[in-house]
Design a binder for these strands. Structure first.
Ligand SMILES: Nc1ccn([C@H]2C[C@H](O)[C@@H](COP(=O)(O)OP(=O)(O)OP(=O)(O)O)O2)c(=O)n1
Ligand SMILES: [Mg+2]
Ligand SMILES: [Mg+2]
Length: 447
DNA sequence: TGGGGGAAT
DNA sequence: ATTCCCC
């Protein structure tokens, strides 16, 4: 089955069951040029949401005085994101603090290493979207995919036709009832996010996740864009590098480049059999599909997180005492989060990064172990698990130099008798209109 | 150059 | 346990 964000290239069997069902969904109409609204929509309607400068927005809500100043959110030595006032001054995402201060001496900085507030706001957004339609897939903290095909289908049975809300890619204008309806739903959802949570963001409306994601960034802060099928090649052709394709990461791009490919067109035209020789049959097909805007992956509801982790990085940590204290610090915060979640972890993992000049800065080592079920609560102080794992990785009889420690709980299971905090599974009877279920007086603890 | 999270291998 | 992907 398709993977989480479904953006990755895997070598496993191709999951094309969905493409088949997509085709069989429409025995009569087969392109989005059909005007027959009495039939089921032949195409899926997929939305992609991406909040504007997310961490910065959260900080501006917490402190409205920051609204009109150039604001950067700082994690250690980098500006992880910044508001649009700062961007006008040349500050960019993931810029070093020194470069940012150079570009914009008046830049105001807030610390952003603690993700608590961002995480909480992130789930409020996802929960709000779920209250309209359960098919919501998270990608990071500020993006959500939504499959609104059914909502659109229902609404088209009532009101025959409607116009587009927001932009249409390439200013194309022609009838397309279900994408137009999708754009109206997107506008309503963005408005809900704004009125209930005070957040702005972009939306993309298209017939698959790849295209919805790519088109959502066309007009950037707080706008939405719909993509019609005749403009798919224009959109794909506008991408200036292979890396812009979601699913083609650093390594894949390097391997493609080693085969002589630089642009999307190169990939489109590259012989499938040779590509298959390097990546395997199914990954090769997947890559060539992505290059022409085809993506048959489903919107997979994300549900509650599968792991909770907490980490900290530093210039140098070289004593057992410091390490033990740091692990205790990380663990106590993690245990608290775990407790609020309501579930119980059954696996613990400790990850470290060792100092090394030669490029190896990004290699991590980890050890994990089961958590005995009888540990009750007090794993934090004098914790036996983390200590064992640490000594498995690090020979403490020799000198060591760590630059990062991460602690992670996974294999999360519902505690017998207790419910989990995340109300992700609200199988509320589907609303007639796209009104939030909670407006009917139902209880949604996260809203 | 942060601090998360996911899936495949 | 590692690698690759996403934000
Ligand atoms: N490598 C990254 C990428 C993103 N983020 C965090 C900070 C961002 O605020 C948030 C969302 O990522 P986006 O790429 O969507 O960036 P923004 O939402 O900040 O800006 P934009 O308005 O361009 O979407 O995730 C991060 O910590 N590390
Ligand atoms: Mg984003
Ligand atoms: Mg964003």
């Amino acid at each position: 089955t398709a993977c989480c964000a479904n953006m990755e290239i895997s070598e496993g069997e191709e999951d094309d069951t969905e493409w088949k069902s997509l085709v069989s969904r429409s025995p009569v109409a087969s392109s989005d040029t059909s005007n027959n609204t009495s039939l089921a929509a032949p195409q899926k309607v997929i939305l992609h949401f991406d909040l504007d400068c997310f961490y910065a927005q959260v900080e501006m809500i917490r402190n409205p005085a920051l609204r009109n100043v150039p604001l950067g959110v700082q994690q250690k030595y980098i500006i992880v994101t910044c508001n649009y006032v700062a961007r006008e001054h040349g500050v960019t995402k993931l810029m070093s603090v020194t470069d940012a201060k150079e570009k914009c001496p008046d830049l105001v900085l807030v610390k952003g290493e603690d993700l608590t507030h961002y995480r909480e706001m992130s789930y409020k957004v996802t929960e709000l979207l779920i209250s309209f339609c359960p098919l919501v897939e998270r990608l990071g903290f500020d993006e959500n995919f939504m499959d609104i095909s059914e909502i659109v289908e229902r609404r088209l049975q009532q009101s025959e036709t409607c116009s587009f809300k927001g932009h249409v890619y390439n200013n194309s204008s022609r009838l397309c009832p279900w994408l137009a309806m999708g754009s109206q739903v997107a506008a309503e959802l963005r408005e809900a996010i704004h009125s209930k949570l005070g957040l702005t963001g972009c939306a993309g409306i298209a017939t698959n996740k790849l295209l919805a994601k790519l088109v959502s960034g066309t007009f950037k802060p707080n706008q939405q864009t719909t993509l019609l099928s005749e403009d798919v090649s224009n959109l794909m052709g506008s991408l200036d590098s292979l890396r812009k394709v979601p699913g083609i990461g650093h390594q894949t791009a390097k391997r493609l480049q080693a085969l002589g490919m630089t642009s999307i067109i190169d990939l489109e035209l590259f012989p499938l059999d040779i590509l298959a020789g390097e990546f395997g049959e199914s990954s090769a097909r997947r890559l060539k599909s992505l290059a022409i805007g085809i993506d048959d992956s489903n919107v997979n509801p994300t549900g509650a997180p599968q792991s909770l982790s907490d980490e900290d990085s530093f210039k140098k940590m070289s004593s057992i005492k410091d390490v033990t204290e740091k692990i205790e610090e990380l663990l106590s915060s993690l245990v608290e989060r775990m407790h609020k979640d309501g579930r119980q972890p059954h696996t613990f993992r400790l990850t470290i990064r060792r100092y090394s000049t030669t490029n190896k800065w990004f290699s991590r080592e980890s050890r994990q172990c089961p958590i005995p079920s009888h540990i009750g609560q007090k794993i934090v102080v004098g914790n036996p698990l983390a200590n064992k794992l640490f000594h498995k990785m690090v020979d403490t009889s020799k000198a060591f130099h760590l630059t990062l420690i991460n602690v992670c709980f996974s294999n999360l299971r519902d505690r017998p008798g207790k419910p989990s905090l995340i109300s992700f599974f609200t199988p509320r009877p589907s609303p007639r209109k796209t009104k939030p279920c909670t407006s009917q007086g139902q209880v949604n603890p996260l809203l």
